[in-house]
Structure formats: C-alpha cells, structure tokens
Amino acid sequence: MDATDVVHEAPERQEPRGDGSRGIGVLAVLLVGVVSVAFGPLAVWLIRDQLHIGCGTYPAGTEGAGTWTCADGIGYVSLAVVLGAMWLLTVVLGSLIAGGVRDERRSRMGLWLLGLAITGSVLGWFWSTTLTLVRDENSALTAEQLWLAAIGPAALVAAVALVVAGVSLFLRGRAPFVLAVSAAVIMTVAIALQPGLGLNLLPVVGLLAALAARSQRPRRTPVAQPA
C-alpha cells in the first residue's frame, strides 16, 4: 500500500469555555433581574395581605372582630428596602461571578452558593419578620401557621431546586447543564406557587440559568494538519 493511501484522521481539540458562556451568564442574571422588578407589588401583597406583617385583629366580641387592620404604607418602607437590598445584591454579585470568574468550576460553585444564601436569607427573613411583626393574639391562626400556609410549599420546592443544582456541581458531561436547567425550571415553579417571592427568587432563577451557561461542554474542533 502506498503511503499516500493511508488516511489520517485529524485530531480534535477542545475549545475552552470562553467569553461566550460568561457573556450569556451575565445576560441571564441581568435580564431576569430586571424582569423580577415587576413582582415588587406582589411582594407587598404577600407581606400585608397574606402574612399580615404589621397587622393585628380586633378581639372577639368587639366590632370588627377577626378583621385584620394594618399599618399605613409608610410602615412598610423599611421592609421594602430590605427586599430591595437583597435583590440588588443578587443581581450585582451574580453578574460579577458569572462574568468575572474565569474558572468554570469556581464560577458554578459561586453562583450556586449565592443562590443558596439568597434563598435562605429571603425565606428566613420572611419567617422572622412574620413571627416578630404579626400581632396574632386574637387571630385564629398563629404567625407560624400564616407563614407555612403562604410560603411553606414554595419554600419546599425552592429547596429541591437548590439540591438539584448542587448535585450538578459534582457531575461531568452534559448532566450538569441538564440539571442546572431543571433547577431553574423548578425554582420557577416555586415562584408560581407564591408569586410574592418573585422579586427575590426570580433573580435566583437567573443565577441558575447562568450556572447552566457555565456548565456547557466545550466544542470540539479538528486540528489542522500540515500537508
């Protein structure tokens, strides 16, 4: 057989995950963060009409017994500032981690830890604020019961989403991307269960979308061989 008849297959090389996945990650965090602002009024609805934070009921036997009366709008400004600060922290830090951390593994871990911290902080803040500021002495439901009824199911689903995303950090191949996307979808379900959490949990969806972007496998391109 003549040497020229031997067919050589060009070897392939992996292209590193470069600015493309980082740019997509930053875009996901920013875009979803901006959209989440539309959920601001629903956060107020959750605070005042479902959790009855800053509210109380008249005692039995009096006119209006069982009716919740709440503070005026000014009384909720400080609560709105806290939620707004957590929203801003998520969007700013998420953008920095998604686009500024070159190492793919560290970026994914950072995005997941930020999502875990924000979700835990938001749910914990609602829990402590409900227990502190709901005057439930004359209510048929305790502050704990109000929180569990309004937020409990969404909190459980959000926890599942973070567990799924956490598992993706320890896998290879296409599985991390699939699990990260699944986690983002599950977190969206949590928001659907309690839209009042959308202001702060929808940016976490953006973090999970950025995590998915940073989890994409590198492309393989043939290496040119000299003639």
Rank of each mutant, 00 (worst) to 15 (best):
S78G: 08
V7M: 08
V157C: 15
A158M: 06
I191F: 07
G99Q: 03
E63A: 14
F39N: 00
I47E: 15
G94L: 13
T130G: 10
E9V: 11
E104F: 01
L51G: 02
A190M: 05
L83M: 10
M86C: 08
L42G: 10
L171D: 04
G73A: 10
V185A: 08
R172N: 02
V35T: 13
N138R: 01
G94Y: 00
T221R: 15
L201C: 09
A143Y: 06
W127F: 15
A158Y: 11
L156W: 15
T90R: 03
W112F: 14
V167Q: 02
L42R: 07
R17H: 02
A117C: 12
R22Y: 01
A213N: 01
G33Y: 00
E15V: 12
D136E: 10
L208I: 02
G84A: 07
T130D: 06
L113Q: 09
A213S: 12
T4R: 12
T221G: 06
A210S: 11
L31C: 09
G84T: 04
A154V: 01
A85R: 02
A165T: 04
L88I: 11
E104W: 00
A192W: 12
V91M: 11
Q14K: 14
S21A: 15
G66W: 03
P41I: 03
G73K: 00
L156I: 14
E137F: 10
H8V: 15
M109L: 14
L156M: 05
A224Y: 09
V6M: 07
A213G: 11
